[in-house]
Amino acid sequence: KKDKGQVIELSYSVFFPPTHVQCKAAVSWAQEIEKRTNGAVKINIFPGGTLTSANECYSGVIKGISDIGMSCFSYTKGRFPEMEAVDLPLGYRNGHMATFAAWEYYKAMKPKELDDVKVLYIHAHGPGLLHAKKDIKKLEDIKGMKIRSTGLSASIVTVLGGTPVAMPQGETYESLQKGVVDATFAPIETLKGWRQGEVVKSTTNCYSIGYTTAMFKVMNKAKWDALPEDVKKVFTEVNEEWVKVHAREWDTADVEGKKFSDGLGNRYIELDEAEHGRWRAAVKPVISSYIADKKKAGLQVQKGIDFLQNYIRNYKEQ
């Protein structure tokens, strides 16, 4: 056991509520670090945005409000123009695929936008799907539907022919129940995590347009540089292992979410190959407008998109 003076205490702001599996994975990461450094490092976790809120998490790490932070790239639109590519509806089939696509993409591209922090690792949720109060069996069924969505998912809803309605995730339950919205666009785990399975009737497995939300775990650069080499080594090892943990937890959460929804008697609708093709074609403008927008800003992102599409094409089911 180390003396109190020698212990390096780090604060860790996590935007997930403490009961979320991803928050629990963050806790187990912290415990593993503490264990493998023999108590030389102690990590205090602040869950549910109790230290910095989701959209302030990243800049909070730069300023040292927290030493480590986990949140979504997409909550601070514009700050991460290259990482945005990961969230596009490229057809992620599961959380493992999305997580490793995001992590490998980062390692291959090393976007400059992340230079002001130390990136510990990146993970991403399973495919965002449509959950509705009445069955969506083909593209035309979406026409005129009011669908809870924000940011990128709102633009996907628009090209699919629906009406995007934005609201906090916490208000979605009641809005589905009362019919303010007819559907919500989210990974299936939210049906359990946010109890929305109780107020929808079906999920359409439109994985071919599955988008994701990539999430970062980053550390204050000065704090990282000040760590002893042996501690840095432990971090690097544990980080590589925990990408797998997060990936697995996303998939487990999706399985649990589906089980919860099935248990409530909700339907799970599969699309045939032809229908998948139509959906894929429908969301193409979202991807091409991303490329065009970034081109205008002087960024070449085509290479990154190709990387991600190749990754998805060559992905082997685990």
Binding site: T19, Y173, E174, Q177, G193, W194, R195, E198, V199
Partner: peptide, 21 residues
């Protein structure tokens, strides 16, 4: 109901928000 605190509590504890309301 409606109630802000019940929504937050429901999500944190994975309880049905409808039942809490």
């Amino acid at each position: 109901p409606p109630s802000v605190i019940f929504i937050v509590y429901g999500i944190q504890t994975e309880q049905s928000i409808g039942k809490l309301f």
